[in-house]
């Protein structure tokens, strides 16, 4: 029989989670360590807006606009809200920007930490569940108006398909089919995606569909930024396929945005 303390180490080894470790060592470093007491923090800090994600032939794509708002003020025109989580997954964030960026950073370390300790990558479902746990930990703040709602997409290396997951503030995890969007402009983006998305889109077409759905979101939602030709700012777009996550270069995005603007100007219609 194993001595009691030696046996206990086996149980502890079941979790190689970085966030569990840091919660035990230095809980103040966690994103959920903030406390807004009884106040609501809705207009206190920048708010990140629309994210769209869609599957295409051989993978999945995620795109986010570049605007953050604080009430009626544009807090940032340059913010990036889509990030690679590891080699085969990306996440996009909508909601309270500061907390969302912290959760993103923690999630990236969480996946890398697991990979280094275990010597193997976490499964895509495992990653989706870890993100759910982090969103769940943020529930008290969400109830005070500082909600974070991510969208998670990745390439399932065992099933060889792109998959995407949405979340609610309680940490509920829902696998989505075909396409999904979150954030203030998501209703309009979703409408556009329903018309534009087709099965087995090529990568270039998929990029264009994503940019166009964000264009439609920006058209009707004041908190979502459209393509900015004056400052040459385009959405941030990542694709994930069997080769890994890749950021679509500015050049391709500029071309896609300009094509959309041109086709809409030519048609000369109101919407």
């Amino acid at each position: 029989m194993l001595p009691e303390d030696a046996a206990a180490t086996i149980g502890r080894a079941a979790s190689t989670s970085f966030s569990d470790y840091i919660a035990a060592q230095n809980p103040a470093a966690l994103p959920s360590a903030r406390n807004a007491a009884n106040h609501t923090g809705t207009d206190l800090a920048p708010h990140a807006t629309t994210i769209v994600s869609l599957t295409y032939a051989g993978g999945v794509l995620m795109a986010g606009d570049r605007r953050a708002t604080m009430g009626n003020i544009i807090a940032s025109r340059h913010i990036e809200k889509v990030f690679p989580a590891d080699m085969f997954s990306v996440l996009g964030i909508a909601g309270s920007a500061g907390i969302a960026l912290d959760i993103t950073r923690l999630f990236q370390v969480e996946l890398e930490h697991y990979e280094k300790i275990e010597g193997t990558r976490m499964s895509l479902d495992g990653k989706a569940n870890r993100l759910a746990a982090m969103i769940r930990a943020n529930l008290p703040l969400a109830l005070q108006g500082l909600a974070v709602v991510p969208l998670f997409a990745g390439f399932d290396t065992t099933r060889r398909i792109g998959r995407l997951f949405s979340y609610d503030v309680t940490g509920g995890r829902y696998e989505e089919q075909e396409h999904h969007s979150v954030g203030s402009g998501s209703v309009f983006a979703r409408g556009a995606l329903k018309k534009l998305w087709k099965p087995n889109l090529g990568e270039d077409e998929a990029v264009k569909v994503a940019v166009e759905s964000l264009y439609d979101a920006a058209d009707d939602d004041s908190a979502t930024g459209g393509p900015d030709v004056v400052r040459q700012l385009w959405p941030v777009v990542y694709t994930v396929n069997g080769a890994g996550a890749r950021r679509i270069p500015e050049r391709s995005l500029a071309r896609a945005a300009e094509e959309i603007i041109a086709s809409r100007s030519v048609s000369g219609r109101e919407a």
């Binding site: 970085f18 840091i22 060592q25 230095n26 470093a29 950073r105 370390v109 930490h113 280094k116 300790i117």
Partner: peptide, 14 residues
């Protein structure tokens, strides 16, 4: 090795 990974990740994160 595992302790080293924890040390590095905690330091890099904080």
């Amino acid at each position: 090795r595992q302790a080293g990974v924890r040390y590095a990740d905690v330091r890099g994160y904080s």
